[in-house]
Design a protein around this nucleic acid. Structure first.
Lengths: 146, 146
DNA sequence: CTGGATCCCGTTGGATACTG
DNA sequence: CAGTATCCAACGGGATCCAG
């Protein structure tokens, strides 16, 4: 399952970087890169997307339970934001007590796939990252002590 | 270039979600998902990785110029953090004036590929997202006025 | 040129209480 | 149950000055 990067692939991405960061390619002050970073760069959006998963509608409290540590407020805010961007659908049932369900839109599911590839990366290199951190901290500690 | 999600793919990811979020699979309180979110979830890490790109070493000020809007402080902080996690190498030359160069490690390059797939998603759906936002805001405004 | 140290402000986000 | 409203602490991150 090792991913190898060949020359061609590298050049393709290299090229993308250049065109993507050229201000002429996004004149309206809307840089898609920054935008995607902002979208996923908050504390909870990615976790919400991952927990929504495929095909099933989840209720508010189901999500709240699944996403460990999220507050009610932040779940609401996060879901609203995702809904605004067209990544999740929100279904409100006129019942008492109220029932609200959420699901990923097709666009959101496409994003989910990409996000899981990121997660795969994290799994693959988890040990190496922890190791690197430990080594770095050890060296830093030694430097401070001397 | 349309990405289609088939049943098998969906089930695979579904399964991953379950195993990944099962506390028994990461007992030491270290959840790889949360960790990767934290890693990329800050304002500048992704942009730094994207700008580092493949194979070339970049100097501090080159990066500072390329990453529009980043402050000196945050570039330093971000690069240190990436170095600590083993995603970038840092080369210091004993010169006057000093010269410091950065490059992605192999592990960092693997991440770069994933990140660019995210960026691809952003490009593909950029218009749709903006449209969705506009529609959402329009509806919200109407509701407020009434 | 690179980047550490400090100061300081705006935003994020948690806790809590209240509503349809 | 699924929110909204308010308050407030913590933190991110910009500006500035200083140093090797």
């Amino acid at each position: 399952m090792e991913v190898t990067i060949n020359e061609t692939q590298a050049n393709t991405i290299q090229e993308k970087v250049k065109t993507f960061f050229d201000p002429n390619n996004h004149p309206a002050g809307f840089c898609p890169v920054k935008d995607v970073v902002d979208r996923i760069g908050d504390k909870w959006s990615l976790l919400a997307i991952l927990n929504l998963g495929y095909g099933e509608r989840l209720r508010f409290n189901q999500l709240k339970t699944q996403i460990e540590g999220i507050s009610q407020r932040m779940l609401t805010v996060t879901l609203r934001s995702l809904e605004r961007d067209g990544l999740v659908n929100r279904y409100v049932y006129a019942e008492v007590p109220p029932r609200v369900e959420y699901e990923l839109t097709p666009m959101g599911e496409k994003l989910l796939v990409k996000v899981w590839e990121l997660a795969d990366w994290a799994i693959e290199y988890k040990a190496q990252i922890l190791e690197s951190r430990a080594a770095y901290d050890k060296k830093a500690a030694k430097k401070t002590r001397s």
